[in-house]
Design a protein around this nucleic acid. Sequence first.
DNA 1: GTCTATAACGCGATAGAC
DNA 2: GTCTATCGCGTTATAGAC
Lengths: 220, 220
Amino acid sequence: MSQADTAIRILDAAEVLFAERGFTETSLRTITSTARVNLAAVNYHFGSKKELIQAVFERFLTPFTLELNRKLEPYQQTKEPIEVDRLLHSLYGAVLSSMTVQGRNPQRFMRLLGLAYTQHQGHLRRFIVARYGNSYRAFAGLLKNALPELDPSTFYWRLYFMLGATIFSLSSFDAIEAILREDFGARSNLQETLGKLVPVATAMLMAPTVDTDIDSKKTK
Amino acid sequence: MSQADTAIRILDAAEVLFAERGFTETSLRTITSTARVNLAAVNYHFGSKKELIQAVFERFLTPFTLELNRKLEPYQQTKEPIEVDRLLHSLYGAVLSSMTVQGRNPQRFMRLLGLAYTQHQGHLRRFIVARYGNSYRAFAGLLKNALPELDPSTFYWRLYFMLGATIFSLSSFDAIEAILREDFGARSNLQETLGKLVPVATAMLMAPTVDTDIDSKKTK
DNA sequence: GTCTATAACGCGATAGAC
DNA sequence: GTCTATCGCGTTATAGAC
């Protein structure tokens, strides 16, 4: 093994193991032995486990955000609203192209994003908001302009519903794909599944705004 | 403290702490000291931490499943499809009514469900599938009948998109509600938000089936 | 049924030799 | 920059007194 790829070997191993098991469930001992580097190397190269977690996220969020900004840039110029499905197309396209360029695994990207939401890691949330919050707000702003008839509260709930549908289902992509393959022999790939998501996410954002009353008393 | 409510005090504390931090991040020491019982009580009453986790899920999944079955029972008789929004109404209604009957917190229910998906706990997944898989399949079957024009692969992906939108966004209900309240002074409660979800989830399930091609090369 | 005490182990982090 | 050895602590689980 050459000298200075130690940090990269650690990042590669940590990315896979974190995505599989979560942060707390993955010990530095497992990471360093998988990466076949010394136990002390994580603390030497990254300082602490927390900083290693942030470095893993930085390595895929930075190219993703750059690619998303690049795709949204032409839309920022104009004042008139962009179609919802074009914005979603840009968002999902940025996931695919930022990952495939580097030969990385986009499913793992989605799993890690899901973990960032779910796991109780305050430092990670703060890190992501501080570093990538502007890009998120830019996308949300464009989407809001595309849906001027929604009141703010309804818009933001629907934005979270959309992000939930995306991150949550695709973070289990491999598991769901395996079930569908077994039961129907239907193979899916992520690109095709993201293609299925565009009309679905568009429909949910643009659904009619007739709030239903969920009464726990009524049976039907 | 009386004698035999020890197990209940442990369940109450564990439910809150698991929902807040996750399973691995919550130690038996934290649980037992919060419940003000002895450290050894968990192992005495439940056998192990894993069995305590399962007991927490059993306590809210069993009433929920019974209530859902009760709501779906009239639909099982007939052969003709039920409307999608009525099925979703039953599903969300079962969450609310099974929780409010016992004065429990439905947000916590959603958070725990999210954790069950996300966290790496094989025993819990097996426990839930073995215990509640039949109810899940009954609901999925009715929904599939309601959407006869969808091919199986598209149907199941959309089912997961819908579950993702529901579980993922509502498991962060308190956090999202706080953001919306701060930014727009818009108060939400869970019942109202589930009401917003019915038309959205209906629209996503019934969206037109024009798969979009996400080409990583194209910019727009 | 409940307690104390402790076994047995895995964890993150670091000091210090090389 | 990499190694070994180890510190100090927190973890689950259990044995045995009450």
